[in-house]
Design a binder for these strands. Sequence first.
RNA 1: UGGGGCGUCGUCAAGCGGUAAGACACAGGAUUUUGGUUCCUGCAUUCGGAGGUUCGAAUCCUCCCGCCCCAGCCA
Length: 561
Amino acid sequence: MNTAQSNTASQSDFIREIIDDDLKTGKHEGRIATRFPPEPNGYIHIGHAKSVCLNFGIAARYGGTCNLRLDDTDPSGESLEYVDSIKDNIHWLGFDWGDRLFFASDYFERLYQFACELIKMGKAYVCSLNADEIREYRGNFTEPGKESPYRSRSIEENLELFTRMRAGEFEDGAHVLRAKIDMSSPNIVMRDPVIYRIKREPHYRTGAKWVIYPMYDFAHCLSDALEGITHSICTLEFENNRPLYDWIVEQLIESHRPQQIEFARLNLSYTVLSKRMLIELVEEGYVKGWDDPRMPTVAGMRRRGYTPRAIRNFCAVIGVAKNENLVDISVLEHCVREDLNETAPRAMAVLKPLRVVIDNYPEGKSEEFECANHPQKPEMGMRTVPFSRILYIEQDDFQENPPGKYKRLAPGQEVRLRNSYVIRYESIVKDQKSGEIVEVHCTYDAETRNGPPPDGRKIKGVIHWVSAAHAIPAEIRIYDRLFRVPDPAGESGDFKDYLNPDSLEVLSPCYLEPSFKDAVPGNAYQFERLGYFCADSGDFLPDRPVFNRIVALRESWVKNS
RNA sequence: UGGGGCGUCGUCAAGCGGUAAGACACAGGAUUUUGGUUCCUGCAUUCGGAGGUUCGAAUCCUCCCGCCCCAGCCA
């Protein structure tokens, strides 16, 4: 059993404890029903993934159900593109709602009827104050609100007006429907909240059929009730709305009332998880789209090469609680490495090439090495890697004046070429003008082909390489954190001022060992000593390979002075 | 300021009156043809603070302090 599964199975948190108690007391006759309710006005991100894992995870754990419900009660900004992306992303994460796909917009008629019922009970009224007036009448934290002059309209008048609102007889903002609760409630949410507004905007699903739309507070709880949800899990900022949730449900629902439970949303360091900010990054071109590999969106992480299992495990590892949190991105990266270490085949690639000539290796000769695809997993097989007189190594793997504990190639030094021979430094060739090192000359020790030097001398360094004559040129995109500061949303001023200018570095040409001729877009590999990379699912072409760096390997060696 | 929440290691997070789990990060060391992996070891005498109850308190009580959310016809 892998870590992700075992973690998920044994997971416990205050919500599961509540459910355990409910099960004990027979609260919902042993039935557990959750839902994941995104609004289709953007792509889902890692924060949503936490909620997806929670809601679907609970359903799975208790043999319950989890609905996917698109909470599409405000037509502005909503679209089918977002619906499709959300469905696709949830499936990719590894969850399935089966036939339990719902739309709040499918409930518009029933919600309308519920609103009429509320009016008939004398618990809702049409208010004709404008938006500014409603705000004024609402009062503030210290002063109670004032009752709207329209609060005492008769049921008949309310019904007639509401009917005419639906019929489209009024302009936007002319009237709203309000719940009649308590204008002096210390909880501002309860001061006669607006539950319907006029909005002459076509809806991506219902078209022009409706010109009035229910507000979240009215639609959400009733949608939950309509679907038989038992535990309606949402984030902390809705705590203030819970009394209203309960109030509406109590007025209109006889039995099987859903219960709202709030948990702390995820915050991740060095990125933003606010839909508004994410939209801004996409629309203003700071990134290349919702699936830009730097984005914390599910689509972005997918393209970057993060795996569903890594993301699920991350969600399990960070836990569910009510504390405001800022989870360090290193936890996510750890989960990604943990998964990829198990599954990614190893191979060699050189990002910043430096030519190496093996002086004592015959020109025109080449040979092949059988290399393991995974050092600890023989079942992952072998591949052949060609060797010849001219190679590329990493520029970082040679230094003319190396620091203290440098274990790579340097004057007077020997180094192991990974899976191949030990070579010894002989000389360098520099560019006359720039002084830049253009070529390193070495000699190889033919006796080190299959093992350590027979004379017993120790070789401490191992570096990766690619045979120049056989190399596949490629473009490699190195991604770094999107922001320079841990909490860009919490900084003063424009969050975009904190963008990391070096979040993308494009390297080309890089050289890959020839086994990459079979690389499959979307597949992840470990470029030994460098990190995990995946063939880009968007731009990869057989004759122009493009790879993304998913995450670097852990680096315990720090270059000091 | 009224209301609603939350304060346990640098960051997450267990703990539910019996004497501070775990993860990430960090620091050492071992093994290693990846400075990777793996494996050891260290890392909160103390739980926002102060009082109190108790044989015993992170857990119960009181007061105080700090942070977050709410004044959209967004969700």
